[in-house]
Computed example of a mutant assay.
Amino acid sequence: MSTDYQQAREALGLRLRELRLTAPGGRLTGTALANKLGWPNSKISKLELGRQTATPDDLRQWADATGQPKAYEELRTRLAGFESHIRSWRRQLTDGHKPVQDAHNAAQANAKVLRAWESSWIVGVLQTPDYARSVLTRSAELHRSPRDIEDAVRSRMKRQELLYSGGRQYRIILWEAVLRALVCPPSVLAVQLDRLTGIVGMDTVELGIVPLTASLKQPPGVGFWIYDDELAVTETWHAELWVDDPGSVATYVRAWESLSESAVYGADAHNTINAARRALSSR
Rank of each mutant, 00 (worst) to 15 (best):
K217R: 14
E257R: 13
G221S: 08
A152E: 05
I172C: 04
G26L: 10
I173M: 08
I226Q: 04
V191A: 14
Q6G: 08
T53A: 15
V210W: 09
D151P: 02
S84Q: 15
D194S: 12
E141P: 00
A23R: 07
E18V: 06
D203Y: 10
L28E: 08
A132P: 04
T55D: 03
G25F: 10
L189E: 03
V113L: 13
G96Y: 09
R17I: 03
A275F: 05
S215M: 08
V135A: 07
L21S: 13
I44D: 02
A255Y: 11
T53G: 14
R254D: 14
R87Y: 04
R171N: 11
R91A: 15
I172V: 15
V253W: 02
T137Q: 09
L163V: 13
S145I: 03
L182P: 00
G221V: 06
D148M: 03
P186K: 08
R78C: 09
V153Y: 06
R168T: 08
V135D: 00
G38P: 03
E176A: 00
P40H: 15
P246M: 04
A23D: 11
F224Q: 04
G201L: 10
A250N: 09
P185I: 06
R154I: 00
V205C: 01
G201R: 11
Q68C: 02
L216H: 12
D245A: 09
L16E: 05
Q6I: 12
E240T: 08
L280H: 08
S139Q: 13
E206H: 07
A152P: 12
D57T: 14
G201D: 08
S262W: 03
T251C: 06
L163C: 05
E73L: 11
I199S: 01
R51E: 15
W62R: 03
G166K: 07
V264M: 06
T128P: 11
T29E: 12
A34G: 15
T53C: 12
L28I: 11
E18M: 09
L21Y: 10
E161I: 06
P129T: 07
D148W: 02
T128L: 08
V100A: 15
S258V: 12
A263K: 02
I273T: 07
Y227A: 01
H104Q: 10
W175P: 00
L16P: 02
T22V: 02
T55M: 08
A65G: 06
V200I: 15
A250E: 11
S134T: 10
V123G: 00
Y227N: 06
E230F: 05
H97Y: 12
G201Y: 02
G30R: 14
L174Q: 13
R15M: 03
P40R: 14
E18L: 08
T251Y: 09
